[in-house]
């Protein structure tokens, strides 16, 4: 940011309505000279360049196209204070979930704060059958997701750190040659913003971005542990079939991921597919022989399938591993032994 841009006469650079604002500007400047100078200094001090944009635009990365626009992302103009529900409805729509922002309001809006919290957008995305995934704080990743067809909800502070104006928008495109980013924001369906300006507003929002993914779809910039955590939170929402799809995608990508494999088994079990559940737990026990949970759950399923002898072996392995799950394992073992004893008595 050069000094020249501040020194230049701002009223000449304004769009429509610039003349009138220029007048306000001149009449106030004299009285507010100290404040103005202070503010200008503060601006100069904080006006460091937007580093991620600079690098990105200079290097023009080869792994993403130069220009992308996700035209099929729906648009809902926001009502007052309702950028959260509007942004979420747009992202959900892109993921194939048609929902009006008004129906999201009761899930995320905090009346006294006149806005919505990030955590609630994540939770509401899950309540509406999509997997909520938070991105790394990298512009590169954000654009890579958009390039892969995943519009991202971003938190911006459109104001300043000491005069914040928090706002959610949806990134639906970018143009590296022009150095611009394309947003569905507020009442604008196609807001074109300079990449640098966007980065400043995004940085003040903590570089926060999230995706709402259809179950079973992995983010383009996916990180293993973060995805597993997102899938667990998704499962807790109660839709076992959707969660099963999310875990299946994770297992396909990382066959050795213990959480994903256990989730695959647990959701299969919840769907009453005992064979699939047993397969998943058996694989988990083979890949992670020290994991008591895998042996315990396998024992439980085998027991339910009537394979008492095999169940007994697995339950004993779970108990032998001790650790924090030992109580549960002993419970499973006791149940199996009771069934065997009852069987003998018959």
């Amino acid at each position: 940011m050069s000094g020249k841009s501040i020194a230049g006469p701002p009223q000449n650079r304004l769009g429509p309505g610039g003349g009138r604002l220029g007048f306000i500007f001149r009449s106030r400047v004299n009285r507010l000279r100290p404040a103005f100078a202070g503010a200008a200094l503060a601006v100069l001090l904080t006006a460091c360049a937007a580093p991620q944009s600079r690098n990105l635009l200079r290097e023009q990365p080869a792994h993403i196209p130069t220009r992308v626009e996700l035209t099929r992302t729906p648009f809902y103009p926001q009502e007052q204070y309702q950028c959260g529900p509007a942004a979420l409805a747009m992202a959900l729509g892109a993921a194939g979930v048609d929902i009006e922002p008004e129906r999201i309001v009761p899930q995320v809006y905090l009346p006294e704060r006149q806005g919505s919290l990030q955590m609630e957008l994540l939770a509401s995305a899950r309540r509406n059958q999509t997997l909520a995934y938070e991105l790394s704080p990298l512009l590169d990743d954000l654009l890579a997701e958009v390039a892969a067809g995943n519009p991202a909800i971003v938190l911006q502070n459109l104001g300043l750190s000491w005069a914040p104006r928090w706002h959610y928008a949806v990134v639906v495109g970018y143009d590296l040659t022009a150095g611009e980013i394309l947003l569905r924001s507020g009442r604008e369906q196609r807001q074109i913003m300079r990449m640098h300006t966007f980065e400043h507003t995004w940085a003040r929002g903590g570089h926060w971005a999230m995706l709402t993914l259809p179950p079973g779809r992995l983010p383009a910039t996916v990180k293993e542990a973060r995805y597993a955590q997102a899938a667990v939170a998704f499962e807790a929402n109660g839709d076992s079939e959707a969660a099963h799809a999310a875990y299946a995608a994770a297992v396909a990508r990382w066959p050795n991921n213990f959480t994903a494999r256990m989730g695959l088994g647990n959701t299969a079990y919840a769907l009453n597919d005992l064979d699939a559940a047993a397969d998943a737990f058996r694989q988990a026990a083979v890949d992670h022989p020290d994991a008591a949970a895998a042996h315990n759950n396998l024992a439980h399923v085998l027991h339910q399938q009537g394979h008492f002898a095999a169940a007994l072996i697995s339950a004993r392995q779970a108990v032998a591993l001790e650790g924090p799950l030992a109580d549960a394992a002993r419970g499973t073992l006791a149940e199996i032994e009771a069934s065997i004893a009852a069987n003998r008595a018959d």
Binding site: P10, L14, V29, A39, V43, T46, L158, T201
Partner: peptide, 14 residues
């Protein structure tokens, strides 16, 4: 006014 200036510089977008 501050926001107007920062908007013009491209730091904010109010």
């Amino acid at each position: 006014i501050v926001l107007l200036i920062t908007d013009i510089i491209g730091l904010t977008k109010i």
